[in-house]
C-alpha cells in the first residue's frame, strides 16, 4: 500500500527536480516585469522580441553556430577515417589512439581552456577564432569517433569486399558502400557534436576575447550587467531549438541507438 503512494511520489519529485528549473526559466521568459523573477509578473512576449534586437547576441550566436557546424564537420573529417581504420585493421596502438581521442571528454574543460590559452594563444599568437575552432573540434572529436565507431561495428566488412570484386577500388568501396550505410551514425554524431559545442562553456570562457564570444559566454556577460528576463527568453529559445533537433533526429534516425 505504501509502495503504491511512494513510488509515484518519488517519480514526481525527481521529474520536478529535473524539469522544474527549466519550467521556471520558460515561465520567466514570458514575464511582463523588468527583472528576472519567478513567479513572473504578468505575461508578455517583449523579452523574447528583445533577444532578437541585441546586437551582441546576434554576433555571438553566429560565432556559436560557426563553431558548432565548422567544429563538427572538422571532427567528422578527422573522426570518420580514424574510426574506420580502428574498426577494420588491427593497428598497433589502436587502444592508445582510442584513449587519446576520448581525453577531451575526461579532462576538465577548465584545464583544456587554460592550457590552450597559456601555450597556444599567448605564445604563438593564435587568433581567438582559430583557437576556439581548434578547441571545439577537439572536444567534438571523441563523440564523433564513438558514434561513428558504433555504427561501423554493425557493418560487415564483406560488403566492401563484394564491392571490390565487382570492380570498385578500396576507396571507391568506402564511398559507395560504407558511407551510405553509416549515414545514420554520421548524422547522429553531427547532432551530438553540434549540441556539445553549442553548450560548451569552460573552454570557451578562457578563449573568448574582445569581440569574439560564443553565445553562452555572451549570456553570462550580459547577466552580469543587465538582470532582465531576456536571458531567460534566449535560454528558452535555445532549449526548444535543441529539443526540436533531437526530437526530429530520434524520429527520423533513431538517434538514441547511437548514443
Amino acid at each position: 500500500m505504501m509502495q503504491k503512494i511512494l513510488a509515484p511520489l518519488t517519480l514526481a519529485l525527481v521529474m520536478l527536480f529535473l524539469i522544474g528549473p527549466f519550467a521556471i526559466i520558460v515561465a520567466a521568459s514570458f514575464s511582463a516585469g523588468d527583472t528576472l523573477a519567478f513567479p513572473p509578473q504578468g505575461f508578455s512576449l517583449k523579452w523574447i522580441a528583445k533577444v532578437f534586437t541585441v546586437e551582441s547576441f546576434r554576433q555571438s550566436f553566429a560565432m556559436s553556430l560557426f563553431l558548432a557546424i565548422g567544429g563538427t564537420i572538422a571532427a567528422l573529417i578527422l573522426g570518420i577515417p580514424a574510426s574506420y581504420a580502428m574498426a577494420r585493421y588491427r593497428l598497433p596502438g589502436a587502444e592508445t589512439v582510442r584513449f587519446m581521442v576520448s581525453l577531451p571528454i575526461i579532462v576538465p574543460g577548465i584545464i583544456v581552456g587554460l592550457a590552450l590559452l597559456r601555450y597556444f594563444v599567448i605564445p604563438i599568437g593564435l587568433s581567438i577564432t582559430l583557437a576556439l575552432f581548434l578547441a571545439h573540434t577537439a572536444l567534438i572529436l571523441p563523440y564523433a569517433v564513438r558514434v561513428v565507431s558504433a555504427s561501423l561495428a554493425n557493418l560487415r566488412s564483406d560488403m566492401e569486399e563484394a564491392a571490390v570484386l565487382l570492380g570498385a577500388s578500396r576507396l571507391g568501396a568506402f564511398f559507395s558502400v560504407v558511407l551510405p550505410n553509416i549515414r545514420g551514425g554520421i548524422l547522429s554524431a553531427f547532432i551530438l557534436g553540434f549540441v556539445t559545442s553549442f553548450n560548451q562553456v569552460p573552454v570557451s570562457l578562457f578563449l573568448s576575447g574582445p569581440g569574439v564570444r560564443t553565445l553562452p559566454i555572451d549570456m553570462l556577460g550580459y547577466m552580469e550587467i543587465v538582470f532582465d528576463p531576456s536571458v531567460a527568453a534566449l535560454s528558452s529559445l535555445l532549449a526548444f531549438l535543441s529539443i526540436g533537433i533531437v526530437f526530429l533526429a530520434e524520429r527520423f534516425l533513431g538517434f538514441s541507438r547511437y548514443v
Binding site: 560487415r156 560488403m159 570484386l165
Partner: peptide, 19 residues
C-alpha cells in the same frame, strides 16, 4: 588486384548492399 581479376564471389552472408 581483386577488382581486376574477373572473379565472382557469392559470400556466405551474401554481402548485399542494404542501402
Amino acid at each position: 588486384p581483386a577488382n581486376r581479376r574477373e572473379v565472382g564471389l557469392v559470400f556466405q552472408s551474401y554481402a548485399l548492399f542494404p542501402h
